[in-house]
Structure formats: structure tokens, C-alpha cells
Measured scan of single mutants.
Amino acid sequence: MQVTWGNVTVTFSNPEEAKKYAEKVARKLGGQVELHNGQFRIK
């Protein structure tokens, strides 16, 4: 499962870890987490 924002992509084998990481990054950037085609995207 991947977490992407800007031109950065981070890949996780565990979807739960990916979700936690995406939420943490979104909080830092003041963005929203979207699940899109099996990727968490931060907008």
C-alpha cells in the first residue's frame, strides 16, 4: 500500500501502518487523506 503526496511516495507492506502514517503526514501538512485506487493520497 502506498502513501503519496506531492512527488513523494512511501510504500508499506502493512495497510494499517500506511493509514497511520498517512494520517500523521496529513496532520502535519494540514491536508486530507483520500483512499484512491489502493493508495492513500494527501491533498
Rank of each mutant, 00 (worst) to 15 (best):
P15A: 14
V25H: 02
S13M: 11
N37I: 03
N7E: 08
N7M: 08
E34G: 04
E17T: 13
G30W: 04
Y21K: 01
N14W: 05
E16H: 12
F40R: 01
K19L: 14
H36R: 08
A26N: 02
S13P: 12
K43T: 15
Y21P: 00
L35Y: 15
V3E: 00
R41H: 15
R27M: 11
K20D: 10
K43S: 11
V10H: 07
Q39V: 15
A22T: 01
K43L: 14
K43R: 13
I42S: 01
R27E: 14
K24D: 13
M1Q: 06
V3M: 02
G30P: 02
I42W: 02
A26D: 00
A18Q: 01
S13H: 12
N14P: 02
V3K: 00
V10W: 13
E34V: 13
K43F: 14
Y21H: 04
H36M: 10
N14T: 13
S13E: 12
T9Q: 05
R41E: 10
Q2V: 12
L35P: 03
P15Q: 11
A18G: 03
T9F: 05
G6S: 07
A26F: 02
K19N: 05
G38T: 03
L29Y: 11
A18L: 02
K20I: 12
N14M: 06
Q39Y: 07
E23H: 11
V3C: 03
H36D: 09
R27Y: 10
N37L: 07
R27W: 09
W5A: 03
N14Q: 07
T11L: 11
T4G: 04
G31H: 06
T9M: 07
G6M: 08
E16K: 10
E16W: 11
Q32N: 08
F40D: 02
N7Q: 09
E23P: 00
T11A: 08
V8H: 13
V8W: 13
G6R: 07
A18E: 00
V3F: 05
N7L: 07
F40T: 01
P15Y: 15
T4L: 09
A22V: 03
E23Q: 09
M1F: 15
W5L: 06
F40G: 01
V3L: 03
E17W: 10
K24I: 11
A18P: 00
G30Q: 07
V33R: 00
V8F: 12
E16N: 10
V33Q: 01
N37R: 05
V33P: 03
V3N: 00
F40E: 01
T9R: 06
T9G: 02
A22L: 04
Q39D: 06
K19G: 06
G31M: 09
Y21M: 05
V10E: 04
P15F: 15
Q32S: 14
K19H: 08
V3S: 00
E16S: 11
E34K: 04
F40V: 04
H36Y: 13
E17Y: 11
A22I: 03
G38Q: 04
Q39G: 15
M1V: 15
H36V: 15
Q32K: 14
K24G: 08
V10F: 09
V3Y: 01
E34F: 10
H36L: 14
E23R: 06
R27D: 09
N37K: 07
K24H: 14
A18K: 00
V25I: 15
R27F: 10
V10L: 12
K19W: 14
E17I: 11
V3G: 01
T4P: 01
Q39S: 11
V33K: 01
K28I: 15
Y21G: 01
I42L: 03
K19C: 10
Y21A: 03
N14D: 13
K24S: 12
